[in-house]
Simulated assay, not measured.
Amino acid sequence: MSWLPTLITKTPEEGYDLAIKLSRMAVKKTQPDDAARGAMRPDYANSADSLTQVSHVVATNFQTVAQANNFWRD
Rank of each mutant, 00 (worst) to 15 (best):
K21Y: 09
P42F: 03
V54F: 01
W72S: 12
P42H: 10
D34S: 09
N61G: 06
A48E: 12
V65T: 04
W72I: 04
N70K: 10
A59Q: 13
T60Y: 00
R37K: 14
N46K: 12
P42S: 06
T11N: 04
A66V: 08
K21E: 10
P42I: 07
S47F: 13
T30F: 07
P5Q: 04
N61E: 11
K10M: 01
L51V: 09
G15S: 12
A36Q: 08
G15F: 12
P32M: 03
E14Y: 03
N69L: 09
M40V: 15
N69I: 05
S55E: 13
R41D: 06
F62C: 03
A36N: 08
R37E: 14
N70S: 02
A48G: 11
T30E: 07
M1W: 10
T52P: 01
N70T: 08
D49R: 14
S50L: 10
E13T: 14
N61M: 04
V65L: 05
R41Y: 08
K10Y: 09
L18S: 01
G15C: 07
F62N: 01
V57C: 02
D49W: 11
Q67H: 00
T60E: 15
T52D: 13
N69E: 06
T52L: 02
D49F: 11
D33L: 08
K21M: 05
R37T: 09
T6A: 05
E13L: 05
A39I: 00
M1D: 04
N69R: 02
V57F: 08
V58M: 05
W72H: 09
Q53K: 13
L18Y: 06
Y16W: 15
M40L: 14
P12N: 01
Q67A: 10
H56K: 14
A36W: 14
Q31G: 14
D43G: 00
G15E: 15
D74F: 11
M40Y: 05
E13Y: 12
A39S: 13
P12R: 13
A48H: 07
E14M: 01
Q31A: 08
R73C: 12
P32D: 06
G38C: 00
W3R: 04
K29L: 08
R37W: 09
A39F: 07
T9P: 00
A39R: 13
V54G: 00
K21L: 08
P12S: 02
P5L: 04
D33C: 03
S55P: 01
S2W: 00
V58P: 02
K28R: 14
Y44L: 12
L51H: 11
P42N: 01
W3C: 02
A48F: 01
S23A: 11
E14H: 06
A48L: 08
V65E: 09
Y44D: 07
I20T: 03
S2T: 02
E14W: 07
E13R: 11
L18M: 14
L22P: 05
K21S: 09
I8Q: 13
T9A: 02
T60D: 15
G15M: 05
T11G: 01
M25R: 14
Y16M: 07
F71L: 04
P42T: 01
Q53E: 07
S55A: 12
D49N: 12
A66N: 03
S47H: 06
I8M: 14
V27S: 04
Q53P: 03
N70R: 15
T6I: 02
E13C: 03
A35F: 02
D43A: 11
I20A: 05
S23T: 13
R24L: 10
T30Q: 12
V54C: 07
